[in-house]
Design a binder for these strands. Structure first.
Lengths: 158, 158
DNA sequence: TGGATATATGTAGTTAACTACGTAGTTTTG
DNA sequence: CAAAACTACGTAGTTAACTACATATATCCA
């Protein structure tokens, strides 16, 4: 047992990050194992545009929970891959509207079975006494109610 | 509800990362609120050297679960801050042994109460139906038994 | 109705992790 | 006991996120 794992709740951010990276790395290998040219980091944008086919840059950023500069660089990469394309919004000239190309839609069709397998695999290893996905949702709810910072501030005076 | 949150288990890596960053950011603000010059990223090394006072670069890297180049850059920063110091191992000249300086130990003494408050706050918002820390530990156990990749591979032929 | 404010996008630079590779010292082995 | 393999550390370069700032368009209000 290493010291960090033994530190209990204090290292929770580090452990969340470590688990995330572990899953992401295997995710990349799974796409490869299926012979599909798809990177895990593309998932949020592609998945979002599949279900909401025409969105602006800021709308996508908000959907996927990234900042807009991060989103822009993702979008650039996906446009270079010809998986998405954009056009100006006629009504609001500031906006650039993004959508999947035919190639992008074909890729989604190709990855659908992999997403199904992944979902099944994740369901398998997160089906433990304390369900990870539910725990995440519950903690986010708690934090929306009162943030980590606010809670810590309150405890100063106790 | 955004598309990513609605995607269920598929976006679990993204959501783990997002939660981690949310906690880390608030962590930084909490240290500041207490008027302590301490960055969340220092935690793994400082905490490890507090409990295991003399370790080599690779030993620290392994303890905190980072690669050794990442660890080296963290160590450089902490040496610059004069919170840790190093010396060659007399027995094995390849090794560099790290330890906390007096300043480093004093800083630990100073942050101890903050860590206590943080632990209490984290315990509070993770005390939900599905306990987040326990869920992480359980999932890591599952993955040690059989990785995400292996599980996905098995499902190809089903 | 035009000046102030807000919103949408974009660019530049930073950061904190990573991989790949190189060198030096230690251990193993034919 | 010397060559090969391994281990420890370090550097260079990459990546994927971020913040800060800039510009253009739209909206609001005095």
């Amino acid at each position: 047992m290493n010291v960090i794992d033994a530190s209990g709740l204090l290292a929770i951010a580090t452990r969340l990050q470590r688990l995330s990276e572990r899953l992401r790395k295997d995710g990349a290998l799974i796409y490869k194992a299926y012979g599909i040219d798809f990177e895990p980091k593309w998932f949020p944008v592609i998945y979002t545009l599949y279900y909401k086919p025409l969105l602006s840059v800021v709308e996508i950023a908000s959907e996927i929970g990234y900042t807009h500069p991060s989103t822009i660089s993702l979008l650039k990469e996906l446009e270079k891959q010809r998986l998405i394309r954009s056009r100006r919004d006629k009504v609001d000239e500031r906006k650039r509207l993004l959508q999947l190309t035919e190639k992008g839609k074909a890729l989604v069709a190709q990855v659908q079975p992999v997403w199904k397998v992944m979902t099944a695999a994740i369901a398998e290893f997160t089906d433990t006494r304390n369900n990870l996905m539910k725990a995440i949702i519950e903690v986010e709810e708690q934090l929306d109610r009162q943030s980590f910072l606010q809670r810590a501030r309150e405890k100063i005076y106790q």
